[in-house]
Design a protein around this nucleic acid. Structure first.
Length: 832
RNA sequence: GCCGGAGUGGCGAAACAGGCAUACGCGACAGACUUAAAAUCUGUUGAUCCCUUCUAAGGUCGUGCGGGUUCGAGUCCCGCCUCCGGCACCA
């Protein structure tokens, strides 16, 4: 056998053979238990980056391992192919987005194939293909017909650079998630999905996702932001209007000394119109509204406020309460108005001090924290924001905060002045985009019939791929393309206009995992039977950056589709793993930083197996991975070490059967102990905790053990034991480095793929050591070690311990008051 | 401020259930092979020497910091610090 490890030739040959033999195809009709292994599909940006290589290497180990364990594995790949970069590239390089995208897909598919990932390529698709987005449109109509998609004028986020609106989830700290430009607020008529209708379920059912990281669940819970409290209506004095506030602290209702409304509140006009200083008031409103919303409502911003001249009436005691306009009240949350309770809210306290408003204490801490009853008229230096016992609160005095909240909400409800209310941070999902390269929204506007959905049989509404000027103008490029826009009303046949906005690309990826279960279906997005066969995805993998966006949208879609009976499970992904980033010099790889390592160069120089092995070995999957050129060299060295080992042994063991003789020498028993305990560790590390780095280190120890054994004179070596060791080594290594293990497997004389072999069983008996080192401690400090046969009794261990000369030094002249024995591990003598 | 996660050699990291801290790899150093180098194989590699002494063993210290529980703590408990991520004038 050639001594040189020629990865170019090996990898190319096996990739071809695997594809030809259909080794990685998932079978719809197959009685074995199914296993759906999925990694987030890529956007075809041009080339793979190391982040891709990492997540797909992780997924491939799992897919291959599960196949060897006897599962019918679905491991598909496709393309999240609609999106802005295609348009930007089109503008910069004068190439059509369609062409740019498909060329990228062709290139990146080759890159994936060169890495040897075991995808079922028969199921591949791209979301920009009409055969896919036809069903995205179909699903849009499903939501529309069921009242879950609607069009409305609303204050929306506008990205001036991307020239489109964005969903709330796509705005990070006031900036566009994609390009970092500051987002502007503007009123526009837009399409929304009613995700808020599912807010409670999206929150409550997080508990069902026991295979998801707590981090992701916490982020989603945060994002949904459910807040339970009360709505309270304050009659406006002298007007036939009332002002509603939302509060979580109804127990502090008697402490209300003012009300603040947001400048955009719909009653602002009425409140200030007939006042003598109304022009000043208007100027104030205008001034506040002109401020950037993010800055205005930032925590450290100055709290500005101005009295409107109007008064509200307390719903329980009828007191007159001034109404102010304040910059710190968020118009879009709750009712856009808050009750001011300065004694028991830090923000209100600060605001009241600034504007000389009354501070009235109504909660006493006494019984809550056991501190002394504080004097009621003592002036507060800070707000008391904890729960307590009510004081100065009419009939509610002496109730606890908790009891009072309930009672007050109930009584207000009876009076018709409020009741319990739940608020969410989550907003409806704004899904329309003023851009070209996306799924057209299948809606027609008719002068007579209004908004008309395109009939299902007329789908897809094709995105024109020629003659489009797609430079962003703030409205969809389709607006000016008459062949697309001009149509006839599906209901009355009159000339009408198509919707020209396209859908947020997150919709494309919110159901793609279902399409993989049935990718060629021409009747439906997916057949129910096939979806039920494969769903939910057993193991899903991707970056943490999708914790809220993609992963919440998918849950929403899956719930909707389950509700409409298209699929049984309402959970898209059973287990989720979020892998860390690939860093170099401590920072994320990026072009601007110039610290990018091109996967193609690595596969060219070292081969796919080395690239995969390094990435899996360098770090546990969830953690960030620091790129290291030396580390890559090390992985390459290791594969060569395996190659040489087999090359040196192959002629000797080619015809050996791994039958183990009953009588073994100590060296053979030692080798088998290493081999079998390594396989045991690899199995556990992959199966139970995806700890690939430690699995690989166990295999390295196996190889080291074989090299040690190889030092023995050839005549004294047991070839059946070596044969067994080499076979187990290759099998355990197969999911990580599929090409080289396949090659060596054939060289050993096998005629079928190693990847079709069952995962190796280990012999627990063989994995156990004959002799163990037991640590002897005196008072918890290590004072000696003894070698004893495994499973020695407590008495034997104790005797061996006190016999140790060095131990005797420490116990001489002292009394042993206690002896702790951990079998096969440790003896601790406690002396005085 | 609230929520989640992390902090271990020169570096990436390991320690499964409270029981030898640093497995495995990188780097470094040394030996073998070689005319030589590379490659390869083998070995050494936490700090320290105030203390002991047999000079290569032994002691002592050591998992962000300070306490605690325990025969024994990287691991459990209490209190902090730092870093990363999410939410945040959300009423």
């Amino acid at each position: 056998m050639d001594v040189k490890y020629n990865f170019h030739e090996i990898e190319k040959r096996w990739q071809q053979r695997w594809e030809e033999s259909g080794l990685h195809e998932a079978k719809d009709e197959d009685e074995r238990p199914r296993y759906y292994c999925l990694e987030m599909f890529p956007y075809p940006s041009g080339r793979l980056h190391m982040g891709h290589v990492r997540v797909y290497s992780i997924g491939d180990v799992i897919a291959r391992f599960k196949r060897m364990q006897g599962y019918n594995v679905l491991h598909p790949m496709g393309w999240d192919a609609f999106g802005l970069p295609a348009e930007n590239a089109a503008i910069q390089r004068n190439i059509h987005p369609h062409q740019w995208t498909w060329e990228n897909i062709d290139y990146m598919r080759k890159e994936l194939q060169r890495l040897g990932f075991s995808y079922d390529w028969d199921r591949e698709y791209a979301t920009c293909d009409p055969s896919y987005y036809r069903w995205t449109q179909w699903l849009f109509l499903l939501l529309y017909k069921n009242g879950l998609a609607y069009r409305e004028k609303a204050a929306v986020n506008w990205c001036p650079s991307c020239q489109t609106v964005l969903a709330n989830e796509q705005v990070v700290a006031g900036a566009c998630e994609r390009c970092d430009s500051t987002v502007e607020r503007t009123d526009l008529e837009q399409w929304f999905f009613k995700i808020t209708e599912y807010a409670d379920r999206l929150l409550d059912e997080l508990d069902k996702l026991d295979g998801w990281p707590d981090k992701v669940k916490a982020m989603q819970a945060n994002w949904i932001g459910r807040s339970e409290g009360a709505e309270i209506a304050f009659q406006i004095d002298g007007m036939d209007e009332s002002l509603s506030v939302f509060t979580t602290r109804a127990d502090t209702l008697y402490g209300v000394t003012y009300i603040v409304v947001a400048p955009e509140h719909k009653l602002v006009d009425k409140l200030i119109s007939d006042k003598e200083n109304s022009s000043d008031l208007r100027a104030f409103v205008k001034e506040v509204l002109a401020e950037d919303e993010l800055a205005r409502t930032a925590e450290d911003a100055e709290k500005k406020g101005m009295f409107t001249g109007s008064w509200a009436l307390h719903p329980l005691n009828g007191h007159r309460i001034p109404i102010l306009i304040g910059n710190y009240v968020v118009g879009g949350y709750g009712t856009g108005a808050v009750m001011g309770v300065p004694a028991h809210d830090e923000r209100d306290f600060e605001f009241a001090k600034q504007h000389g408003l009354e501070i009235r204490r109504v909660i006493d801490p006494a019984e809550q924290d056991g501190s002394e009853l504080t004097s009621e008229d003592e002036e507060l230096s800070v707000a008391y924001v904890e729960d307590g016992v009510l004081i100065n609160s009419g009939d509610y005095t002496k109730l606890t905060s908790e009891a009072a909240r309930e009672q007050i909400a109930k009584d207000l409800e009876d009076l018709g002045k409020g009741g319990t209310m739940t608020n969410y941070r989550l907003r409806d999902w704004l899904i329309s985009r003023q851009r070209y390269w996306g799924t057209p929204i299948p809606i027609v506007y008719c002068d007579k019939c209004g908004t008309v959905p395109v009939p299902e049989e007329d789908l897809p509404v094709l995105l024109p791929t020629t003659d489009i000027e797609f430079r962003p103008t703030g409205q969809s490029p389709l607006v000016d393309y008459e062949p697309f826009v001009d149509t006839i009303c599906p209901q009355c046949g009159a000339p009408s206009r198509r919707e020209t906005d396209t859908m947020d690309t997150f919709i494309d990826s919110s159901w793609y995992f279902l399409r993989f279960a049935d990718p060629h279906n021409e009747e439906l997005p997916f057949g129910k039977e096939k979806a039920n066969k494969w769903m939910p995805v057993e193991q899903y993998m991707g970056g943490i950056e999708h914790a809220i966006l993609h992963l919440m949208y998918c849950r929403f879609f899956q719930m909707v589709l389950a509700d409409f009976g298209l699929v049984d499970t309402d959970i898209p992904f059973h287990n989720l793993m979020t892998q860390g980033m690939v860093l170099r010099d401590g920072a994320k790889m990026s072009k601007s930083r110039g610290n990018v390592v091109d996967p193609d160069l690595i596969t060219q120089k070292y081969g796919a197996d080395t690239a995969r092995l390094f990435i899996l070995f360098a770090s546990p999957p969830e953690r960030d991975l620091e790129w290291s050129d030396e580390g890559v060299e090390g992985s390459y060295r290791f594969i060569n070490r395996v190659w040489r080992l087999v090359a040196e042994y192959v002629d000797l063991i080619k015809d050996e059967v791994p039958r183990i003789p009953d009588e073994l020498g100590s060296r053979e028993r030692e080798l088998r102990r290493i081999v079998h305990s390594s396989v045991q560790r690899v199995t556990r590390d992959i199966d139970e905790r995806f700890s690939f780095n430690t699995a690989i280190s166990a295999i390295m120890e196996l190889v080291n053990g074989l090299y040690q054994y190889k030092e023995l004179p050839a005549s004294r070596q047991s070839l059946p034991v070596v044969r067994e060791a080499v076979e187990l080594l290759l099998l355990a290594l197969a999911p990580f480095v599929p090409h080289v293990t396949e090659e060596l497997w054939y060289r050993l004389g096998h005629t079928t793929s190693i990847h079709g072999e069952p995962w190796p069983k280990y012999d627990e008996e063989a994995a156990r050591a004959d002799v163990v080192t037991v640590v002897i401690q005196v008072n918890g400090r290590v004072r000696g070690r003894v070698e004893v046969s495994a499973g020695s009794s407590e008495e034997t261990l104790k005797a061996a311990a006190v016999d140790e000369p060095r131990v005797q030094e420490y116990i001489e002249g002292k009394t042993i008051v206690k002896t702790i024995v951990v079998p096969d591990r440790l003896v601790n003598l406690v002396v005085k």
